[in-house]
Design a protein around this nucleic acid. Structure first.
Length: 184
DNA sequence: ATAGCGATGTTCT
DNA sequence: GAACATCGCTATA
């Protein structure tokens, strides 16, 4: 079974997250194209998920989580890094998939410049945003037709579930997904 | 390889 | 004040 973008965005957030493995995240910013194949993602629920930024309802920070599926939610982490999510599901449910890592495939030299190093370019949510040039100004943009886009996979990827990283609440939910098989 | 720790600023109690 | 969906450096193996 394979999905197009709109089918993916309509799935329940856990299914959307595991399905998103193998999809390409591509950024076109100031003339430079950079892209990865996603290999680490996490599902976050809406106001009823204690680990979610949407827990307790809408605020200034999480506003874009409450928007239409396919919206990019970018927030500042630990005061230093940017992290990016894909909003999924019905408007107002505030479900989102945190993009935690990918395998570099396009614009590697640009990513090396942005990261100021040649290793560990995109193996972490903050690193991924830095390599792709994603910042707070991209919060609320569309992954369908904006500067950062989500593109269908080359082939399907089997998902393995594990606990979400870096959280202290709802740690029993296995909502982190990585490829079950080693990548090519 | 893994463990410990400081940096940094926004968000929430 | 405290917590935080993190990162990179250092030390030890």
């Amino acid at each position: 079974m394979s999905y197009n973008l709109f089918e993916l965005l309509a799935l329940p957030v856990q299914r959307a997250a595991e399905t998103m493995l193998g999809w390409r995240l591509q950024s076109n910013i100031s003339g430079a194209t950079t892209g990865v194949i996603l290999n680490e993602v996490e599902a976050y629920g809406g106001p009823d998920d204690p680990a979610s930024h949407a827990y307790g309802g809408r605020t200034a920070r999480n506003a874009s989580m409450f928007g239409v599926a396919g919206t990019l939610y970018v927030y500042r982490s630990y005061g230093v890094h940017w992290c990016a999510n894909v909003v999924t599901g019905p408007v107002g449910e505030a479900q989102a998939v945190l993009l935690r890592g990918g395998r570099p495939i396009d614009g590697i030299s640009t990513m090396e410049t942005r990261r100021r190093r040649v290793d560990h370019l995109t193996d972490g949510p903050g690193k991924l945003c830095q390599a792709l040039g994603v910042t707070g100004e991209h919060d609320g943009t569309s992954l369908v037709d904006g500067p950062i886009r989500l593109l269908p996979p080359v082939g399907p990827v089997d998902a393995e579930a594990s606990p979400r990283v870096g959280i202290s609440k709802a740690t029993d939910r296995l909502w982190r997904f990585t490829p079950a098989q080693p990548e090519p």
